[in-house]
Computed example of a mutant assay.
Amino acid sequence: MKTELTGKLQKLGFTENEAKIYVGLLSLGEATAREIHEYTHVPRPKIYSTLERMSKKKYIEIIGGTPAYFKSVNPEQLTEMLRNEFLFSLNETLKELNSAGYGIKNRCF
Rank of each mutant, 00 (worst) to 15 (best):
Y69S: 08
M54T: 03
S72I: 01
K58T: 08
A19D: 01
T79W: 08
L87T: 13
G7P: 02
Y102E: 08
C108Y: 15
L25A: 00
A100W: 05
S89Q: 10
G101N: 01
L78Q: 00
G29Y: 00
S72P: 08
N98L: 10
P67C: 06
G65Q: 06
E80H: 09
L82H: 02
T93Q: 10
E80R: 14
K56R: 14
H41L: 11
E52C: 04
N91W: 07
T6L: 04
K58C: 06
I104M: 08
E35L: 04
F86A: 15
N106I: 09
Y22F: 11
S72R: 04
N98C: 08
E96P: 00
A31F: 00
P75R: 06
G103E: 08
L9Q: 03
G65S: 06
T79D: 09
Y102D: 06
Y69E: 12
F86P: 04
E35K: 15
P45G: 03
L90K: 13
N17Q: 09
E16P: 05
S27L: 09
Y69V: 08
L12Y: 07
L5H: 05
K2S: 11
F14H: 01
L28S: 03
L9K: 01
I104L: 10
L51N: 02
G65N: 07
Q10R: 11
L94Q: 09
R34T: 13
A100H: 05
S49F: 03
E85F: 05
S89L: 12
P43L: 05
S49P: 01
R34G: 09
G13H: 04
S89V: 06
K2D: 14
L90A: 14
Y48S: 15
L82D: 01
P75N: 05
